[in-house]
Each structure stands twice: as C-alpha cells, then as structure tokens.
Design a protein around this nucleic acid. Sequence first.
DNA 1: TGCTAATATACAAACGTTCGCATTAATCGC
DNA 2: GCGATTAATGCGAACGTTTGTATATTAGCA
Lengths: 331, 331
Amino acid sequence: MVSITDIAHALGITPSTVSRALAGSSRVKEETRIAVEKKAREMGYQRNIVAANLRKGRSNIVGIIVPRIHREFFSNVIGGAENVLGEAGYNVLICQTIESKEAEIKALKTLRNYNVAAVLISHAIESTNSAHIKDSLGSDIPLIQFDRVFPDLPGAKIVGANCDGAFTATKHLIEQGYRKIGTIAGYMSSLAYVERLAGYKLAIESAGLPYDESIVYYDTIVKETGYAACEKALEQGCDALYCAGDFSALGAIEYLKEKGIRIPEDFGIVGTANESFTALMFPSMSSLGQHPFEMGQAAAKAFLEGRTDTQVIPMELHIRQSSNKNNTWQK
Amino acid sequence: MVSITDIAHALGITPSTVSRALAGSSRVKEETRIAVEKKAREMGYQRNIVAANLRKGRSNIVGIIVPRIHREFFSNVIGGAENVLGEAGYNVLICQTIESKEAEIKALKTLRNYNVAAVLISHAIESTNSAHIKDSLGSDIPLIQFDRVFPDLPGAKIVGANCDGAFTATKHLIEQGYRKIGTIAGYMSSLAYVERLAGYKLAIESAGLPYDESIVYYDTIVKETGYAACEKALEQGCDALYCAGDFSALGAIEYLKEKGIRIPEDFGIVGTANESFTALMFPSMSSLGQHPFEMGQAAAKAFLEGRTDTQVIPMELHIRQSSNKNNTWQK
DNA sequence: TGCTAATATACAAACGTTCGCATTAATCGC
DNA sequence: GCGATTAATGCGAACGTTTGTATATTAGCA
C-alpha cells in the first residue's frame, strides 16, 4: 500500500507538500502539484481515508439509522440519500434498529465513534421520546430526522405532508359519495400517524360530517389488525375507510373480498404509502403516496447545505379501483 | 471526547495497560481491569474506532456493493447481511452501482481505502467480466459474491439454485398441461440467467418436448420488454411462459389481460424472484422464489467463518393463480 | 540470600494523514 | 544592493489506538 511518504521520497520532497498538493492547496507550486499527481498515478496511490479521518477528527461517512432496511419505504429513502451523498463524496453506513430503542442507542454510539459527518435517522417505534438521542450521539454531529421525527430535537427534519395528504384522501372518499368514513389510524406515539388522523378529522369536519371517535381504529398497522378493524367498521355501519398504512388497508380489502362486499361500489378504501403492490393487486388500491426517494435526497441535501429547518414533502393521492366509485377505473 | 490516555492519567497507569485491560488481555491483573472498566464507565469513555482501525490496518466495516439499494431483492439481502454482521460487531457500508461498471470500480477502491474487513458484492450488469475487481480491490480483502457472481474469481459465492428452480418451474407448467412453453430469458452475461435457461431447457427436453430456440426471448428483463415478448410468444403459438424475472412476467400478464386471454386457462405464466407484488396482484402470479434475506445471512456468515466455497440457496416455487390450471386457486 | 521464572506494567514506535509554524528562496521597491 | 515582502516548501507534532520489547516487581526454590 503506497502512502504519501512513499511519493514524497520518490520525488525528494516531504509528505506535507504531497498532502497539500493532492488536496489542491494554493500553497504548492502548480509544477509540483502536477509532478505529485503524476507520481501518485504511477505508483497507484490510494488515499488512506481512515488516517485522514483520524487526523481531521471527522469522517466522510454519513450514518443512516432506519427501523428496517428492507422495508420498501426505507430502502427507497436510503437509495435517495446515497444518490446525493455519493455524488458529494460521502459514503453511507447503515444501521437498522428493528424498532428497538436499545439498538437505536447502540447505533448512535457506534456512529459517534466513527466520527461520522452526520446522522440521518427515522426513529424506532419503541423510541417514544428523544432523550436518548442527544445522550448517545452528542451534540456536535448534525442530526437530520426524516419521516418519524421528534419535534423537540433541533436540526433539519424531512417529513411527509401527512395532514394535508390524509385530508385530501378523506375528502376524495367523501366526494365519491361515501357517507360514513372511518379511519384505521396507526400508533399515536408517532407524529406521522397523529398528523394523518388530524387530516382525516379536518376533512370530515369541514364537510359537515360528524367526527366519531368510535370509528377511529388505533394501533392498527399490519394486515391482520387491518382485517379485524374492517370487520368492526362494517358492524358499525361504515362504508369506507381511510387507512394510515397500506398493509392495514390490504387486510381490510381481504376481509371485504371474503365477505363478498363489492369494492368500490359498497365500500371504499384508501391506503397510505403507495407501496408497489397497491397498483398491481385486485382491486387495485388507492393510496396516498409518499416520495421516499425524494425524502432521502432532501435529507442528504439538508445535511450538505447545513439546513436546520423542517421540510415538508408533498404526498400524492393515487386514485385506483378501491375508491373510484364514479369514474371509470384508472390504470 | 475521553481517550484511553485520560483514563490512564486518572488511574496513574499508562495507555497501553488501559488498552489491554479494555481488550480483556490476560496480561493485566484482574484488579486493574476492573478498575479500568469502572473508570471508563465513569468518564463516559467511547472507543475511537477510527484510531483503532488505523493502527490495526483493518476496520470492522464490511462493504456491500449492489446495483440498487431499493430493489426489493437487494434490500433484503442487505437486511440479512446486516442482521448477521451487526451481531458480530461489524458495521455495514453500502455502495450502489446503478448497474455501472465505473461506479463499481469506484466503490471497490473506496472500500479498499477504508480497509474494510470484507466486501460483499453482486456485480453490475455492465460488468461483463471480473478483471476490474481484483485490480480495484486488491487481493488481501476477502470478497464474497452473491447472486450475480463471476465463477473465475476465488472466494465464497452464494447463489440461488437457478437451474434447479427453473427446472421445477418449467416442469410445473408442463404438468399443468401447457403444450408449448416458451421462456423469457434475461441477459446471458449474467450467470444466474444462463442457469435459469439451462434449467428450462432441461425440463423441456426431459419431458420429451422439443427445445425450440425461436421461443426463447433473450435480453428481456423489464415490464415493457416482457409485454413485447409475450406478444411474439402468442404469435408463435405458445400457451405458457417461464419468465426469468417477475417484472417481465408482469408485462406478459398485462399483455394477456389486455387481449382478453384467460389466465391460467388459456395461457400460463411463472415468474422468478417472488417479489411481494406477485402474491397480491390479480391474477396472482406464480413465482420461483429466491430467499434474499437468507442469501444475505449466508454471505455474511461465509465471511465470518472464512468459507471459500460456493453455497447454493434453494429456490422455492410458489404456485398461484397464473399457472394453476387444474387445482383450485391457492391463496 | 541469591538466582530464575513468572507476572504486571511501562516505554515507545508505529498506522498515514493534516496543519500550524518555521525556514528557505525568490521578488520587489527604493 | 539591502531590507521587506511574498512564495514555496520543510519540520514536527498531533489524532487515539495497538503491540513488541523492556523493565520492574513479586514469587518460588535451592
């Protein structure tokens, strides 16, 4: 492995000059710089990033902490972040928490030890407050939160327009002529779900409909609980559900199909996340789409540009069969 | 940031002893070790991994290079690898190539500069041979290949049982009573696709059917080309297709649905990869499933255990509506 | 008591960079 | 032609750890 010292010896100069030359410092002569670069190429020099990082006390690694790498939403966020960070010369170190607070703390400490340039995080469901975050990471590493954020932590935040989106989705159901619209809400420990519920409520109330707590199904996020919630919703006389997740919506559709209830004629469903299966299933599912790739890009840019504000990424309603009562089905 | 030197000063001993104590070396007295550990806890000591890595000339980072992080298959492999490596105290640095050979070379060089403990790679489509790999990575870093592998490179390889799987899938189509079964093959530059084609051929021939090159559709991997290939297959009198990918199969199904051809009564389809949408779409798609999470785990373990052999991960045929002519539809 | 062997710790050199400061060489103005 | 200024490079310490070798201490034994 050839080092700057080797290049320096070969050229009869010192490592410091070589270092400066390779860094493009104005403190070295153009001529020397060219000679150094030539020699470096000749000798197959590769900069030792670890040594540079140690000396500088900061690395060009950006840590990303997500609940689960293989969740479609998160892998797309990571893809978007890598896309921007790679361009800028950063590398990404991935940690997953599997929704565990303990794992999150461990990941934060590890990243601190790596002297990472920044941390991008979407916190675990088990992390119900932000106290452990600054303790584990310290305060000198920029923290960029996305999707699941703690509002009380300083620094950049990238969130979906959950309230707006849920409002639009619910309004769409109302406009389709559904009369009693319930909602499959998620966990109220997560701001994103709180906001979606707020958007739902706003839409219901601004249409002059009664907001009814008894048809709000909390803590429902997976297929199985969505199935059960739909059963209850039917008993309570609902004819549509806005679901704060696609998987709970999937469970609801499954229940309706089993019972032979027609979708969308007799019952309307809108999910959230626009997972790829929503467009392909039958009936295809209307879904409130997030833009995970763009969120990842925005998070990366927020770090690169030193932003500390909150960015809201719009959500987009994809109207498909499961809620499209009146119009011809869209593809 | 507190260092071992700080702990040493606080205890009136030297950094070397502290280092050894924390590493659990038998060269320090039990008593000293306990004192050091206590002090370290008290002072909130965190080991500086970067410094340790520099000194040791090897880091506890494992690099993973994939074409696209957000492709379902790869994000699952990464999830599986992280799962095993995290347990073993390694961290995962992710690079994506977007199928570009140039990006792959850059990623390999970067990982070499980080002195990574190992590299797990599934190469880009543009990388048609292995020459650049050893040049860029050097030969002292273990290289574990998965899914898309170069047989001529030494070291561990984790592959799906592509030939076996394609054989099973094609045999299934034959048993369902389809008479002229074509195949949507992928790129022959990639071994995985070559093997799938071989399995298809084997099944056709061992059933006494004629192997017909004219109904093998090469270089077809995305939805659009699958759509076109299916059109040709119909013209040529096929009544079934084994597709080496799920997306090309999706295109084929789309074409059949548009033309009003009944699935599976008039035409059978089996895809490959068992992407999550295959189970949810309509008609649900039969698919030859890989086990990406397990492949990731196997790749990680191959590194940890120092294996250099080739492991074959079985593939599993999920029979769903699109090929299930005779039996009642499975869920 | 003196010698050997063991145990426990200290010393110091690395790993490859970076960067403040010092030094040397060249240029300029008068 | 001399002092002052600028340009180019050299020197050396530092980043925090690990580890081979040396030293000091203790124990064992004759």
